[in-house]
Design a protein around this nucleic acid. Structure first.
Length: 262
DNA sequence: TCTCCCTGGAGGTATTTCTC
DNA sequence: GAGAAATACCTCCAGGGAGA
């Protein structure tokens, strides 16, 4: 915080000024419940969290602190910020940690809104994660092999395949399933795919490796294909969110890999 | 100065493995 | 077998370097 304190203070002042100017015709004074953090100690804050764990997410989010930072800085692992299960001692440590990040006060509607935004973001991520399952279901429906997510070992390290067959032992067919929602992510995702293909083929030279990609910029599919051009990748297909698109892509990939159901 | 390409960190979820 | 811990991955964001 010390590194950026001055710049942050200046920006906060500027933002408050510009908000008042920008919305001068729409600003009203309202009476709302306000939590005065400056009047409480870290111990008071800890007591509140102990008695009402549900408040933790909004407090953390207001400080832009998530579970990863809590683990990194406080060595408290596997914190579910939305439904925390913590000891009193752990909560005291967290309260002491976030207290300096909290403003002197915050309105309750503001805090609840912050929680809502974070919750919606989490739920959307959850829904997007289900796309992979749809691909897996289609693979098992149209393929002559049974696919499932599984681990494999390459060069002494463990890696994961989104869909593979068989479920244990040597991999015969491995499939990477990737969503690329932003253009700027194609490098990172393509690198991951090529690396995964290399690992699979290094351990199972006789295996087939395919990729199912969600990339909504159709005119740039050729770009992805060029980036994924590799002797270790035997098939690349694109699918969207729809059932028809998923089924078409999966059938095409299975056919390319020579494992589609007769 | 702007845009594109690339990299890496931070937010998150889901699955597998470990431990009791 | 259940919960905890570890692992892998997805999405978003910010910043640096190169070239137009």
């Amino acid at each position: 915080m010390g590194w950026v304190q001055g710049d942050a203070d200046s920006r906060q002042e500027a933002i408050e000024d510009v908000l008042r100017n920008a919305f001068s015709n729409f600003i009203e004074k309202r009476e709302v419940d306000v939590i005065v953090f400056s009047s409480m100690t870290a111990f008071d804050l800890a007591n509140a969290i102990v008695n009402h764990p549900l408040i933790l997410k909004s407090l953390l989010a207001a400080c832009n602190i998530a579970a990863r930072a809590v683990e990194r800085d406080l060595s408290i692992k596997n914190l579910d910020t939305y439904n925390p299960r913590l000891s009193e001692d752990q909560i005291k440590v967290i309260a002491g940690y976030i207290k300096p990040f909290l403003p002197s006060y915050l309105e309750i509607p503001t805090l609840s809104r912050i929680d809502r935004v974070a919750f919606i973001d989490k739920e959307i991520r959850k829904v997007k994660g289900r796309w992979e399952k749809k691909i897996l279901e289609s693979l098992n429906r149209f393929g002559m092999l049974q696919f499932r997510k599984r681990m494999f070992v390459a060069e002494g390290e463990q890696f994961e395949l989104d869909a593979a067959s068989p479920e244990s032992g040597g991999v015969k067919v491995g499939i990477d399933i990737k969503r690329i929602e932003a253009r700027r992510d194609i490098h990172k995702r393509c690198d991951e795919i090529v690396n995964k293909a290399d690992k699979v083929k290094s351990s199972f030279p006789g295996s087939k490796f395919g990729v199912v990609v969600y990339y909504p910029f159709i005119e740039e599919h050729i770009n992805i294909q060029n980036r994924l051009r590799s002797d270790n990748i035997d098939g690349i297909v694109f699918a969207s969110e729809t059932k028809e698109s998923i089924e078409h892509a999966v059938r095409l990939l299975l056919s390319t890999l020579g494992v589609s159901k007769k």
